[in-house]
Design a binder for these strands. Sequence first.
DNA 1: GGGTATACGTACCGATCGGTAACATTGTCA
DNA 2: TGACAATGTTACCGATCGGTACGTATACCC
Lengths: 201, 201
Amino acid sequence: MKSIEPTIKADEVAQPRAGEKILRVARDLFYRQGIRAIGVDEIVRRAGVTKPSLYRSFPSKDELAASYLRQYDLEFWDRFDEAVAAHPGDPRAQIAAFLTRIGKRTQKPDYRGCGMTNAAVEYPERGHPARVVSEANKQELRRRLRAMATAMGAGDADTLGDGLLLLIEGAYISGQLFGAGGPAKSVARNADLLIEASLKK
Amino acid sequence: MKSIEPTIKADEVAQPRAGEKILRVARDLFYRQGIRAIGVDEIVRRAGVTKPSLYRSFPSKDELAASYLRQYDLEFWDRFDEAVAAHPGDPRAQIAAFLTRIGKRTQKPDYRGCGMTNAAVEYPERGHPARVVSEANKQELRRRLRAMATAMGAGDADTLGDGLLLLIEGAYISGQLFGAGGPAKSVARNADLLIEASLKK
DNA sequence: GGGTATACGTACCGATCGGTAACATTGTCA
DNA sequence: TGACAATGTTACCGATCGGTACGTATACCC
């Protein structure tokens, strides 16, 4: 019996492809538990697929981890650009908006920090696919923060940009170390104090 | 034939006990490559001992990791107290000395950050033996930094203490992420700016 | 309906994981 | 000499690791 809807085919209605399901599950498990802590068997089991499906979509577990981080990277910059767009031409307010959001996220019960940062800690070896993605993300973040510090008119803009990066990374880490009530909740306040001090020069 | 030196026995001359050799090697490998990345087989091989020796001295790999961190903790506070003792009664200078030293260490080629911080990232699960040691160390560090901020006469001492902790953790992480020339080299400068701003209140 | 390409599952691989049982060897001290 | 404590030796355990050879099902096109 012919379908009543003629040409609405696998593109739109169909259940997600195996590769997508795998990446979704991997993203969740890798972020919450760590990449090394999760085996491919658990990923395919929770995704409701089988192992060969994983290796048809990804050449290796390391590359799956890199794919997870590439997606993380996209979403990170979405959030970053959202804070920027909310305060056009006002980099200090952009930073404040971004850090206020981070500060709030770090107070959530199961906060696990930044997937990029965590991956770099898990894979210190240079050239590892996951680490490459992580390093590129951080380099770009540093570049943007320094550019924003310059736009603010800071005397030593590179130092201020780097100081903001230190505060951000510190928030990621202490957020997952201390949980709610930890030092990360004051990241926006401290960043603003640092900016204030750097502009007065 | 009796020995010429009568009672200089196993305590002083003898080669280190198996447990000590294991802990030495484990400390080195765990710090540089990560705890999860290193198997017990490699530890005993590099230590020149056998696996049963490891499990006679340590009940499990997790407990060996905890022992590594307990030793790390002792050495950490040695360094911290050294900076404190160098500037009696001057908490601001104590912080400056401690952070200058961290900033320098982060610029070394194979810097791998803080073993405590890294372990907490590797083991997010609450109650893990390694994580317990790490969390205790960080809690104490936070307590001391806040006390020092109070002693400096900061208006909002808890915020300043937490801000310093964020900068420190940020230095640990970005030190291993960026290598030499990274943002961590400015940690002491940024901390001083932050202190300056916090005292002016 | 038959051909074909894509997608998936079953079953398996060798290697390594953390951990242990049983016994031989050594040096120390009484 | 004889007991004791520490270590080494060898061989092994079940579980899990990342990864793959190969057969099967499904959907589309002609």
